[in-house]
Design a protein around this nucleic acid. Sequence first.
RNA 1: GGGCGAAUAGCUCAGCUGGUCCAGAGCGCCUGCCUUACACGCAGGAAGUCGGGGGUUCGAAUCCCUCUUCGCCCACCA
Length: 895
Amino acid sequence: MTEPALPPQYQPGQIEQDLYQRWTALDLWRARPQGDRPSYVIMMPPPNVTASLHMGHGLNLTIQDALVRFERMRGRRVLWLPGTDHAGIATQNVVERQLGQEGRTRFDLGREAFVARVWEYVDQTGDTILEQIRGLGASCDWSRAYFTLEADLSRAVREVFVRLYERGLIYRGEYIINWCPRCLTALSNEEAERQERDGSLWHLRYPLADGSGHVVVATTRPETMLGDTGVAVHPDDPRYRDLVGREIRLPLVDRLIPIVGDEGVDPDFGTGAVKVTPAHDPLDFEIGRRHRLAALDVMTPDARMADTVPPPFRGLAREEARQAVVGAFDALGLLEATAPHRHAVGQCYRCDTVVEPRLSEQWFVRMAPLAAPALDAYRDGRLRFIPEHRGEEYARWLENIRDWCISRQIWWGHRIPVWYCQTPACGRVAASRTDLAACPDCGGPARQDEDVLDTWFSSQLVPFSALGWPERTADLRAFYPGDVMVTAPEILFFWVARMVMMGLEFMDELPFHTVYLHGTVRDTLHRKMSKSLGNGIDPLVVIERYGADALRYTALAGAAVGTDVILDPNDLEASFAAGRNFANKLWNAGRFLLGNLDGPARPLAGPHRGVVRRDELSLADRWLIARCDLAVREVTAAYERFRLNDAVAGAYRFLWDDLADWYIEQAKPRLYGDRPGGDVARAVLAATFDVALRLLHPAMPFITEKLWGSLPGRTPGATIATATWPLPDARAADPEALADFALLQELVAAVRSIRAEYGVQPGQSVRALVSAASPALRRAVAAEEAAVRRLAKVSDLVLDAGSPEGAGSAVLSDGATVAVPLGDLIDLERECQRLGQEATRLADLVAGLTAKLANPQFVSRAPEAVVSREREKLASWETQVAALRRKREQLGCSG
RNA sequence: GGGCGAAUAGCUCAGCUGGUCCAGAGCGCCUGCCUUACACGCAGGAAGUCGGGGGUUCGAAUCCCUCUUCGCCCACCA
């Protein structure tokens, strides 16, 4: 069987597409509900159906895929469950914008036609994001993909709503909520994002009704004064105590309003007197309620001044009204001061419009009873966060939790399953799992609530609703509870905390035991990548130019626990070249290997399994096998600890530094048949390369699959994706080989350095004369002399040689001196300087360490192992310094 | 206003329980090489007061305090 020749540069595009198709055809990702091995379940945070892939997804999905592939190779029954979120407001906005381009609004269509239109849109484009996710190589179980608005999940939504309603945890009431005047809906507290803004604090004079003076109130929102129904001061404030109970004649609207004393007023802020607008401010609402003040809503849903306010303010947008009110006060001589004031303003998380606190009747979930068990789970260690400190954020939110406004005045979503009896005498309000045509009490006509539920109400159920709950399905039994939640910190409260609460409430078990919160993808100015800033990186472009593996490599390498991933949108090369280069390196190592597998037949099984006898292994073979085992241990531990950057780096170093730069170069003569032992080298190379591919597969699935599949001896249908994860092997440990080969590397590096220093032509061979070699170096040279000669381009390697004149020299860590005779090329002064610098550097270290070891405190208090290690270090350095000084003496260096 | 995180080479970052750290990697930079796997490469090299100051310790990039600068989360001072 001959593969078509592999091109010298890895071309990811077609290969990746073909491989994903092959994986799909093999149906590798479908989770098995039954089996001996434990399951491993990750719920993919469902992207919005309207979304297109951005780097945040890229990071999030790559991390999950790496974890899932790792565990799959370790034999777990993996379920990585994908899905999409109907994303109520976001999706509705998209379709409304489309309608807007046709000059129409959703109201022109009416509810039914509009919802049909959104479905049409979703059916057409809803798979886009899923297709893009495939491009990343995501190994999720597409057969179980869900959509939060599909029938099964909608049924779960109703079930949950009704159960919570029956338990009294859902109620309807009139409170101040966050209102988006552009989306025309209520929002939860979490959906109103606080943004610091520069504003003003206006000091307004409110005349006393009896004309005996005035009170000055301070406000950031003067336009709301049109709805003022009182003025509040702290009851103990000596400045105002006597005014409590008197009345203000409210300017512009000419209304008499009372001055009340309320503990909620901070006497130290502003003037200590607060205008009270119960319909437009949460604090004012509380104050108003305590003092039975009327609540006047002075705005329309789109935040214009309502008909209830007098001209000229009526009909003005709230920003215009603000200017107009301030102007009017100024004209009346009632504007006392204007001061710059920076404060946090709520913004709609979907459209950035400043939200309007507004009195409104909405549905709420009582959160405190649900939050308590979720907090306990964290406190008693059942729920773990990575990084750990995120757990405190979670806890603090739960401790201060407020009720959750779940009704939205939009059409796209789960309609609230509540029906109102239209018969006035009955007036029954019924929450129902099934649609009601008539009132369950009186049989009269019933009308369903017009509102829909917050999108997050359905997504919080996904860990069990997507598995078939409330049916007790096989999937539910097999895959709940899950294991790890991988997500961005932004949705810790929106989603993660709520999933925990719902899981505990309805399944009596946590939905996952670990929450892994990765960083945010930012640009080099540390700004979050976003469409509006135009600082995004399109993952599809990256995949096309550099390959999905390169993107994944970059994401993982940058994903150290607790840090953000910084990428430069203006320099893709800086961000992704390393990953592409590494893929190419792998590719070429594979190409080399495949091109050199011909030769004396020898089973290509792992040396760990003893196919090649231990006494046949050369020093380099033993060294590589030991390094490989260390890499297995390091990478495995890194994955287990979510240290994905370490996992990638460990595999990278083994593959590139050890296997490619040293072992392959060392083994070439054997592989070319110039020296005996080619069969052993082939076996070692094939086995360790196989291990390296497996270690890298979770991070770079495409290229590892491609190469692994090309290795000889593969049965058709074999895939690295389900190959077993390499296990550490105690028999591979070989401290002697590690140490000896390290000395050999030093020797080669020393000769190369001398060659470069004196500009020896690359083709020119040199002699290398070694004196005072340690037993380890003697062993190493005896074993691998040919390698040294080849790697350092040395014609003669002589041990126990005297150091001649006209040579460049270096001292190795075992104290051996290497001399490379270079005749005329040598500059004696330069040579003296080189050796002198090195001697001085080491002598300083020796002095420091000598002092340390002379310190009885250190010797007595530091652990024995540390002390002996330091003694060995000192001995080594002393030997080196002595050797360097001898050499300088011999050269007749001055100083 | 509270709470938290970060600051290490020109850039992006590792450095985990204080001692294998004589501070590393990738990119960029300099020098030399198209050496029959790879120039997306090979070899050699330059580059760091580990943000400033103080402390604890035999020993600090690592722990503590403080200052500076950036970032995040929370928050009804109108």
